[in-house]
Amino acid sequence: MKPKKNPNVEIGRNSSLYFAIGLNLMLLLSWRMLEFKTYDKEVVSIDVVEVESEFEEEIPIVNQIAPPPPPPPPVSIQENLQIVEDAVEVEETIIESTEITQEDAIADVVVDVSDVEVEEVEEDVQVAFAVIEDVPVFPGCEGLSKAKTKACFQKKIQEHVVKHFTYPEAALELGIQGRVSVIFMIDSKGYVTGIRSRGPDKLLEKEAERIIGLLPQMQPGKQRGKPVKVSYAVPIFFKYEGL
């Protein structure tokens, strides 16, 4: 028995393919419809603009020829010639050469040692208190050994600071306290010079310099038997129980 339908012309064989193509076309159409935008059209009145042509007059360029400047006034040159008789004889200056030639003889001069004068120049030597051979002698420390003289000097400095110590009133009111380091110099004559200080405030520095400035004259320190400058540093503490 022969089949009634031709298998090559079966309609439902590619139905799924047709369905997918139709679905994609519908989705594409729907997407384009959703993305479609419309804009409000405004009524724009277009007027006719009438432009009149302006006539520009061409101005001819005229080159003005400036007249030449007037000639300068003639300069009158007056020649005043004075004839002077050649009555004064001029002496010519003879310039002698200062170059030495082989013909010139050099005199042999012998200088004795006794004829040479040697000037002694005093050196400004400065030695620290810690390495000085002979420390300065404070009044009241005479006749002691080197070690005792050094200890006596330091003790007298401390007593001097305590004796003349005065706390500045302005520093008390402002509550200023701290340590002031004072460096000074005992020159070759025993006077105190070159006082410098460093501390927390100018008020305390000024008071510390005043105390050191009251030091008396001492016997100068010596290095190799000669008086020299000696540098010394002393700390001064400014502190009271109220702070």
Score class of each variant (00 low, 15 high):
97 S>L: 13
120 E>A: 10
113 V>R: 15
134 D>R: 13
100 I>N: 03
114 S>M: 10
153 F>K: 04
114 S>P: 06
147 A>I: 10
106 I>A: 07
110 V>H: 05
93 T>A: 09
119 E>I: 11
153 F>P: 00
128 A>D: 15
96 E>T: 07
141 C>F: 00
142 E>W: 02
100 I>Y: 03
125 V>Y: 05
145 S>K: 10
99 E>C: 07
117 E>T: 15
116 V>C: 04
151 A>V: 07
120 E>I: 13
145 S>C: 06
148 K>W: 02
132 I>M: 00
90 V>G: 04
92 E>D: 15
135 V>T: 15
87 A>H: 11
132 I>Y: 00
89 E>R: 13
110 V>M: 00
93 T>G: 08
131 V>S: 11
134 D>M: 12
89 E>M: 06
138 F>E: 00
134 D>V: 09
126 Q>S: 14
103 E>W: 04
112 D>G: 11
96 E>G: 09
99 E>S: 12
133 E>A: 13
100 I>Q: 09
93 T>I: 15
101 T>F: 06
110 V>N: 03
135 V>D: 05
98 T>Q: 10
106 I>F: 03
124 D>S: 09
101 T>E: 06
112 D>N: 11
91 E>Y: 09
86 D>F: 08
88 V>R: 10
137 V>N: 08
111 V>C: 05
91 E>N: 10
90 V>I: 13
123 E>R: 14
150 K>R: 15
127 V>F: 01
146 K>C: 06
107 A>L: 10
125 V>K: 05
109 V>M: 05
113 V>N: 14
141 C>G: 06
151 A>C: 01
126 Q>F: 01
103 E>D: 11
124 D>C: 03
101 T>V: 06
128 A>I: 10
121 V>R: 09
128 A>Y: 04
152 C>W: 03
109 V>A: 07
144 L>H: 06
145 S>I: 01
111 V>R: 08
95 I>T: 11
150 K>G: 11
115 D>V: 01
127 V>S: 01
125 V>C: 01
101 T>A: 03
107 A>Y: 00
146 K>M: 06
136 P>L: 01
98 T>L: 12
87 A>R: 15
120 E>Q: 14
131 V>G: 05
139 P>Y: 03
122 E>L: 09
137 V>K: 01
110 V>A: 02
125 V>R: 11
130 A>C: 03
122 E>R: 09
135 V>H: 02
127 V>A: 04
107 A>Q: 14
92 E>R: 11
92 E>W: 08
130 A>S: 13
100 I>V: 15
149 T>I: 02
126 Q>L: 15
107 A>E: 14
147 A>P: 09
